[in-house]
Design a protein around this nucleic acid. Sequence first.
DNA 1: CTCCGTTACTACAATTATTGTAGCGTCAAT
DNA 2: ATTGACGCTACAATAATTGTAGTAACGGAG
Lengths: 105, 105
Amino acid sequence: MVKRVRGSRTGRPIMVLLDLLGRRWVLRIVWELRDGPRRFRELQDAIGASPTIVNTRLAELREARLVELDAAAGYRLTVLGRELLRLFLPLHLWSEKWARATGVA
Amino acid sequence: MVKRVRGSRTGRPIMVLLDLLGRRWVLRIVWELRDGPRRFRELQDAIGASPTIVNTRLAELREARLVELDAAAGYRLTVLGRELLRLFLPLHLWSEKWARATGVA
DNA sequence: CTCCGTTACTACAATTATTGTAGCGTCAAT
DNA sequence: ATTGACGCTACAATAATTGTAGTAACGGAG
């Protein structure tokens, strides 16, 4: 069961998902795994967060069946995780449009 | 300029965007605005966060040109905000599949 | 067998973010 | 004058995150 300490006490899947994805570093971790498995430290260095929180988030993502640890290769997206990532890929292109439109990034 | 106190010090649009969307309540606020404008308090009640943080997040979202305040109607998504929301809509359906697959929500 | 590097991960104090409660200032209607 | 809706702020209490250090398990080289 994914903890929902924060908002969305309704238990509706979309709320639980938005809650999970809205936790610091979660989106970023999923994003960093887009091209294949990464080691714990490698991931930690890539995003620049503390090992404590990287480990916490990885545990949450594993519990949510979005990420798994392969002893030989490192952390990687599960089938579900890759599906989710696919939904997010359009963000990449859109973010550049957004940046141009706002001068914000 | 969107602050990037947290991760993503690269300045790449996708990183800035993931950082912004990864802040607590941001995804939820965008989601709550999907059906039209909401008043400050209404929004606050809907998500159950403190007025302090709701106001902080709304300010960030306004700076990012994703949300705007219409004095007559309340807070609402801008054109860019609606584009972003459209990218997120598939999450709704997928979240139910995810919930069934994991028993997690 | 021991030393060395790599692995995932934990301990813990310091710092930062968020909450919860109360309330302010403005405006419009009564 | 009062009331109510509105966006928003102050501030102390609590929770989340960081940064640094270090643990424990494993595998290969000497």
